[in-house]
Design a protein around this nucleic acid. Structure first.
Length: 892
DNA sequence: TCGGTCACG
DNA sequence: ACGTACGTGACCGAT
């Protein structure tokens, strides 16, 4: 039988590490929790990796220790614990208590002394001891093979395991000698002085030669190096003092039996309650199902009625006598555009949900029976992630009306920063209830199941539970939306937009495969040529796609100067290569190679993969709950980043065509929407005037920052001004601008100062919005879309600066998103009301594309321009440019 | 799974 | 002293 394992965690050290490793997260009530969250994540990871029998967390106790008595200046240079962290200690302790994990702290001692003592006791009891910390001082405790020290590496879940052998091998000295090493070199962070001029290298050398500090002084004459010797002699007392301070003691008077440290069952109810309170949703979902009392309740409680044949009598009766229902389809797998539809859950009013199974080939009967209910605007429908279900209906040629609530969209506008908007998350947050995540239901990786693999009963039960929870979670979300004055944003913009996006996705964008393939062949032959030339110039073959191998070739073999490094090695990005241009022929080739490979792999091969074989259409997925600012995102493929900036890339747009020769593409593009929004928000007179006069904004800015008339602005000056305008939108910094323009920071600062001097109200706006963000905890867009910015309160300069840029940028980017979303909803409605065949098929942040029937061209052009420019009335005019083409290349 | 890189607004 | 432009997604190699 293997030895029993005792784990001792340095609570102070690990909480500090977690706090600084993670962004400053806080709950809705403004309680900071990032440190605790990180700590618990680490704890889970370690418990998964190591099979622990005994556990204990050691904390420092406030007040002086014996080290302070020996040396007044001990840790005197420490900054006081930031407030955001200080409060997290009690939260952590509360949670550890709920986990039934014993904590020890003792007056006059630090956590590492407790850990040292426990490691001795554990070892004496024949246990294997694992010490967890962020502090390298612990290495001195590796007194035998039975002890291991885990030290945090970068991030929060990476730990490096140290053993006695590893230390000796790596440093050439024993763990015990680390105490002597500390005596020699001191420790800045603890304010332990050490001997001036002796660092790690010299220290280790000395200890290898003499073994200990005592021995060094016994044989001081043998010390080589005059300076070292003199320093040793002069600071002899410091060496011994520092050694004493640096030694972790192993005989702290703790009265505790091992039995008390034995791992115990957590108090699950208490733990669940705390996880909810502090919004640790991901930790909550790790708690085993059987421990979630409430969950059993909810999933067992939900009764459902399974309909396998065409006996729709009961459900029709219910539908006829009610005004609202929720529904959700079950698809075979996640591709809801293509995979077969297995069934549908329908919940009418407060009644038990129905699950209609489609397997008896009753889809047609279902459609004819239920179409009118889905298409009646008087019967309200709700759901979660309804885009998918709307598409499901479209596949049945059912065009939904009367969408009343989508819980996923609701939660998104309440807090767009979340990464997961599952029904389970909502249920935990609002109902103290939960259900399985889809991943728990289907598994993941190789063994992932499809819904088709589940029994009909399982599918019925799952969908019914979901619908039941969605029904119940609707109310609190609706109330919160009202409370935060987001009714307009929700009911008039985001909710109607769900249908618009579903429609766009369902319509898809026709692709001319021949154009793509032709272009792909051209790219491929160019890539082949370049590959050979690069090998030739490098004098060897290597994987040009590997930044590592490329770095070795450029900087080791060809000895080109290193411009920038990444965490893992040399940086070889376009910026670096650009600076190396002219130093070696190979550089140009690599840049070209990179560009072409990108085009080929992502935009030719990647796109071809996603083209529907029958219809030759691409159905990109438009996601409404991804971005922090309110923009929508596009995936599989991302149609929002199709190349345009280089001519070669731009050619790819020739492959995007209307669905038939009767149609053309009409492209409406907002001109300078973000700067116009800024003008509106700041009310800066100069900026507003520029837009009223429809001036070229970059030229105008150039004339202001360079203090010259507009007709004297050179193209180079205009370019600089353009970069300044971007900078203003992003939350300006001289560093960012200097890097972008490749100019000295000082020069960049001048431009910015000039800008803000000229556009005084912009300056004021930026200052005000940061202050508002700090006071309220969030910033808002024109339509009251909210983004919380806890970073603004950070003590950390970088984090706080980031928060300031978010506060400046989000209202601008987010309001622009509001505007185009309103335009989309209105255009969709107008096309429908007028019974036009033309369809909205794409949005790229400030651009919309309508696939337009040729007979409707003039009408659509006019309607589009009109709606886009008047979507939301600003204090400056909005301007839209309309272009028409037979493919997307022509419309630019 | 993560980091580097690069495509877009 | 700090070390950054804002918002996304896809692909690749390395781990």
């Amino acid at each position: 039988m293997s030895e029993e394992k005792l784990m001792v965690i340095d609570g102070n050290s690990l909480l500090h590490r977690a706090f600084y490793a993670l962004p400053l997260l806080s709950t809705k009530d403004g309680i900071y929790t990032n440190g605790v969250y990180g700590f618990l994540t680490m704890l889970h990871k370690i418990q998964e990796d190591y099979d622990i029998d005994y556990i204990c967390v050691a904390f420092d106790k406030k007040g002086p220790t014996f080290r302070h008595e020996a040396f007044e200046q001990y840790k005197a240079n420490r900054d006081s614990t930031p407030n955001e962290l200080a409060l997290q200690f009690s939260i952590l302790k509360e949670i550890l208590n709920a986990m039934n994990i014993r904590q020890i702290e003792l007056e006059g001692y630090e956590a590492d002394d407790i850990a040292g003592t426990l490691s001795r006791i554990g070892e004496e009891n024949g246990m294997e001891v694992i010490l967890v910390t962020g502090d390298k001082d612990y290495l001195q405790l590796l007194s035998s093979d039975n002890i291991k020290v885990l030290i945090t590496k970068k991030g929060i879940t990476e730990l490096e395991e140290y053993s006695r052998d590893k230390i000796i091998e790596e440093y050439g000295i024993t763990p015990e000698q680390f105490i002597d090493l500390k005596g020699l070199m001191g420790d800045k962070s603890d304010n332990i002085p050490g001997i001036p001029g002796i660092g790690e290298k010299t220290g280790i050398k000395l200890l290898k030669q003499f073994g200990s500090i005592e021995n060094i002084y016994d044989n001081i004459d043998e010390v080589g190096g005059k300076k070292t010797k003199e320093a040793l002699i002069e600071h002899k007392n410091i060496a011994f003092l520092s050694k004493k301070l640096g030694e972790i003691i192993k005989n702290v008077p703790i009265q505790i039996s091992m039995e008390e440290l034995k791992i115990k069952e957590p108090d699950w109810n208490k733990l669940v309650e705390l996880y909810k309170k502090f919004e640790f949703n991901s930790l909550l979902s790790k708690i085993p199902d059987s421990k979630l009392k409430i969950q059993e309740e909810s999933s067992h409680k939900v009764k459902y009625k399974l309909i396998k044949d065409n006996k729709f009598r009961d459900i029709i009766d219910e539908l006829d006598s009610n005004e609202e229902f929720g529904f959700k389809f079950v698809f075979e797998h996640e591709n809801y555009m293509k995979s077969s539809m297995l069934g549908i859950g329908i919940k009418i009013a407060d009644n038990s949900p129905y699950y209609i199974d489609f397997s008896e080939n009753n889809i047609d009967v279902f459609i004819t029976t239920f179409k009118k209910y889905f298409e009646s605007k008087d019967i309200k429908k709700y759901g979660h992630m309804m885009k998918v279900d709307i598409i499901g209906l479209l596949r049945m040629d059912i065009h939904i009306k009367g969408i009343e609530f989508d819980t996923m969209i609701g939660e998104y506008i309440l807090d767009p920063a979340q990464s997961n908007y599952s029904v389970n998350q909502l249920a935990m947050k609002y109902l103290n209830s939960s259900c399985k995540e889809e991943e728990q239901l289907l598994g993941k990786g190789k063994h992932k199941k499809t819904y088709g693999d589940l029994s009909v009963e399982t599918r019925a039960k799952y969908v019914s539970t979901i619908l039941d929870l969605v029904y119940r979670v609707k109310k609190p979300i609706r109330e919160k939306i009202k409370e935060l004055k987001m009714d307009c944003l929700y009911y008039e913009v985001e909710l109607p937009l769900v249908e618009v996006l579903a429609d766009m996705e369902y319509n898809g964008f026709k692709v001319d495969l021949e154009v793509l393939k032709q272009l792909g062949d051209e790219f491929e032959s160019q890539i082949n040529n370049l590959t050979n030339e690069i090998y030739e110039l490098a004098g060897q073959e290597f994987n040009i796609n590997s930044p590592k191998q490329l770095g070795e070739v450029l900087f080791d073999k060809l000895k080109l100067p290193v411009i920038k490094r990444t965490k893992t090695g040399y940086s070889t990005d376009a910026e670096v290569l650009d600076k190396l241009r002219g130093q070696h022929e190979i550089i140009e080739k690599i840049l070209k190679y990179r560009q072409l490979v990108k085009l080929k792999t992502t935009y030719i091969d990647g796109l071809i993969n996603l083209v529907d074989e029958k219809t030759h259409k691409i159905h990109s997925s438009f996601n409404q709950t991804v971005t922090n600012t309110g923009r929508i995102s596009s995936t599989e493929p991302n149609l929002q980043n199709i190349p345009i900036k280089t001519e070669e890339g731009r050619k790819i747009r020739k492959a995007f065509v209307p669905k038939s020769k009767d149609y053309v593409l009409v492209d409406g593009d907002y001109s300078q929407i973000e700067l116009r929004v800024l003008a509106h928000l700041s009310k800066d007179p100069k900026l507003m005037e520029a837009f009223f006069r429809d001036e070229d904004i970059h030229t105008k800015t150039a004339s202001e920052i360079f203090g010259i008339p507009k007709d004297e602005v050179t193209p180079a000056m205009r370019n600089k001004a353009k970069a300044v305008n971007f900078g203003i939108i992003y939350g300006i910094s001289d560093y960012g601008l200097s890097r972008d323009l490749n100019i000295p920071r000082k020069e960049a600062k001048e431009y910015i100062d000039n800008y803000l001097e000229n556009y005084k109200m912009v300056k004021k706006y930026m200052e005000d919005i940061i202050e508002i963000g700090r006071k309220k905890g969030y910033v808002e867009t024109i339509l009251n879309r909210r983004r919380y910015v806890p970073e603004l309160k950070s003590k950390n300069f970088n984090v706080r600066s980031f928060g300031e840029r978010i506060a400046m940028n989000t209202p601008i980017q987010g309001s622009a998103a509001d505007i185009i979303k309103v335009a989309m909803v209105k255009i969709y409605k107008e096309l429908k009301d007028r019974n036009l065949r033309s369809k909205l098929i794409l949005q790229v942040h400030d651009e919309l594309i309508i696939e337009t029937h040729k007979n409707e061209l003039e009408e659509v052009k006019q309607l589009m321009k009109n709606i886009m420019e008047n979507a939301i009335k600003l204090d400056v005019p909005l301007k839209v440019e309309i272009k028409v083409g037979d493919n997307w290349y022509e419309t630019q």
